[in-house]
Design a protein around this nucleic acid. Structure first.
Lengths: 220, 220
DNA sequence: AAAATAGTGTCTTTAAGACACTATGTA
DNA sequence: TACATAGTGTCTTAAAGACACTATTTT
């Protein structure tokens, strides 16, 4: 006797930042945009995280810097075939230049809290829920760094806040918080522009996601 | 086509405080202690919360003051019949004197973070996970009040911390935090003992769970 | 009066916020 | 030199923590 997974799916809301915009990974099939989603494969998956990562892997081989379960929802109305349930995940990755991507993969911009295209099924709702969690959690954790490339400046962290919340804590506060713990390593390199160069940092290897003991007030 | 729920269960970790101890609601069958758990009933349940509440209702008619999903786990090893998954909830209720209780319902004391009896299956692990979440969340929310009776004193809140974390924030801090927002109402009544009477408060009707913007430091 | 717990006053500490200031690059 | 952005110094603010003090009851 096995698990009938017909009406259980694992849906993944994968975010990245590109050109100061928040984007969402979708699969586009016949003009229909949907989240990467699928069923548990008992032969392959050892846990639900595995299933989630497998969904992402069908669309891109980009590294998922952070993966977290949001919530499991179930109801009689989600699917016309009857009661169905979904385990919703969100994933954070950085914008890489030339990762492999499936032909039907498409990054959709999120503006003002909503994806710019119509999503199939109740996927918009799942995105909104995941985004809610993300917007909340960046305010007391090191999550912002998982939306950035391997090397980044402290202003990049500030930009993550601006993009997601429309306002950011002052640089003073970001610097104090992120440089206090030894969470980041100064690479010694600089990013140059038409101004004073900025120090490039990277996350210390194997440093776990850091949880701070306060929220920023300026972003409330 | 319906949902085969054979290997999906909803498990509930229900906590209460009794005599300064944290207790866990179990079902005892043939000397075996287990969590209230069961399957989705598509005809009856409109969402997973409904399923969770239904599990509790089979054991007691006590009011569940707070219910929250912890995590959904799945793996090939949990059940000898194959891949199975569980949506884990935790519930908070107050210790009432004479609620209806099923014959097989039994409240088990949790000491030093573990239930005092052996639990069936992987239920001990689920309890530990739920407790982890609870211990964390009381430090930045109004959750402690949901483990207390309808009317309680501010020292009762402190006792919740002591019971769950072995240390508590100073009364000064608890008073400042819980009385700042208008979360509590002074009932005007007093609890008398062999000492100065303490003011009894109750939670303002329909006041949502309150999230504060800092953690206590003394409980870290 | 003694014991016990409730509750206040007030100073310290910590980390965030405001904001002016300096630093270092490019055009 | 003007500009733009990076980064610092330092004072203020908000809420927690420490701790001594007062308050109110029972025995």
């Amino acid at each position: 006797m096995g698990l009938n997974t017909a009406l259980i799916s694992i849906d993944v809301v994968a975010f990245r930042m590109a050109d100061g915009q928040l984007q969402l990974l979708t699969r586009k099939l016949d003009q229909l945009y949907m989240l990467p989603a699928g069923r548990i494969e008992p032969q392959v998956d050892d846990c639900l995280d595995d299933t989630a990562r497998r969904q992402l892997a069908t669309l891109t081989d980009q590294h998922t810097a952070y993966l977290e379960q949001v919530e499991t929802i179930g109801s009689p109305d989600r699917d016309s075939r009857g009661w169905s349930m979904t385990v919703v995940y969100y994933a954070l990755m950085s914008h890489e230049d030339n990762p492999w991507q499936s032909d039907d993969a498409e990054w959709v911009t999120i503006s003002e809290g909503e994806p710019e295209v119509l999503l199939a099924y109740d996927h918009k709702r799942l995105v909104v829920q995941a985004l809610e969690r993300l917007k909340n959690k960046i305010q007391y954790s090191s999550l912002p760094v998982y939306l950035l490339p391997a090397e980044f400046t402290l202003s990049d962290i500030q930009k993550v806040f601006e993009t997601l919340l429309e306002r950011a804590p002052p640089m003073r506060s970001i610097r104090n918080r992120f440089l206090r713990e030894d969470l980041l390593i100064d690479t010694g390199k600089l990013r140059r522009g038409s101004n004073r160069p900025a120090a490039l940092y990277r996350v210390r290897e194997q440093s776990p996601t850091c949880l701070f003991d306060r929220l920023y007030l300026t972003t409330q």
